[in-house]
Amino acid sequence: MTGPAPLLSVQDFRLEFDTFDGVYKAIDGIGFDLAPGESLGIVGETGCGKSVTAKSVMGLLPSPPARVRGGRILFDGEDLLRVGERRMRAIRGNEIAMIFQDPMTYLNPVFSIGTQLVDVILAHQRARPRAERMTRERARDHAVEMLRRVHLPNPERQLDSYPYQLSGGMRQRVLIAMALSGRPRLLIADEPTTALDVTIQAQILDLIGELRRDLGLSVVMITHDLGVVASVCDRVVVMYAGQIVEDAPVARLFDHPAHPYTRGLLAAVPHPGRPAASLSSIPGSLPNLLDPPAGCRFHGRCPLAGDDCLRPPPTTAVADGHRVACWRAMEAADAGA
């Protein structure tokens, strides 16, 4: 596969948390690439490590308890795990920005939207040469421009409103405006629509798609909702218990899922567009990452598991750009097709 150099490249990344009960092996050797302008979905259930991955890219995990055990996170060729907090601060917002599930948590309730947005814009100026920095007035104009960009109605008036006066959808728009104010190249969205109603979710997903087209933004979308992935992502990474089990273009993933976990997940979600007689469930529950099972971490719940699954599974390419970490990848792919 030879494309443009990846914008973000995570290579054999490992991360642990020191907890009261022992070492929690949250991320165990994950790797994926994100091409410029691409939209990548990271899907998985609670505790699979998808949010931890995102926060690691942003350098937002406090250490301790988090401990990086190896690997590299290359952004435009620069290893984010080794750049140091000073450089990281310049990268955050100006190169990579993040939006979260609950916008209210990330907005300060005692300051108006305008004040917070202007402050963020001015903070980004510090990374620029002195001559090119904006004045407060310029920043305010820029703030209005950003709010217009995210289609917030009456942007001039909304500058003076406070977070509690806005609806959930509007708050998420404000947060997106803040994230984009430093003109980042990569936007990491951590469950941005989970707390929103369906009709509002559709608006925000539309907006993210529009911003990608207009600004050439790359997006990492973290979600548990396969529908969201299907509608906004080009490629999907499926995570299970701190590992990547499958990495595929969206169309491949839904039409030819190769990993038994992915297939179980797809069969477990009721489809809103068609009637279903029954759902198949994945038996059992997530393994305890304080003491993860040997070999394939899914083998205890896997319908295809055999003795070889007690050894770490190889990652094989089953098609162009479609990799699976499974001893039975081919079998599963055939069964799925």
């Binding site: 369906v198 009709t199 979710q201 559709a202 997903l205 909702d225 396969l226 529908g227 969201v228 992935v229 299907a230 509608s231 969206v250 169309a251 491949r252 993933l253 839904f254 039409d255 797809l266 979600v269 489809h271 809103p272 567009g273």
Partner: peptide, 11 residues
């Protein structure tokens, strides 16, 4: 509108 707003888990 509600039914149309739900993204489908399909390719």
């Amino acid at each position: 509108a509600l039914l149309k707003a739900v993204p489908y888990p399909q390719a």
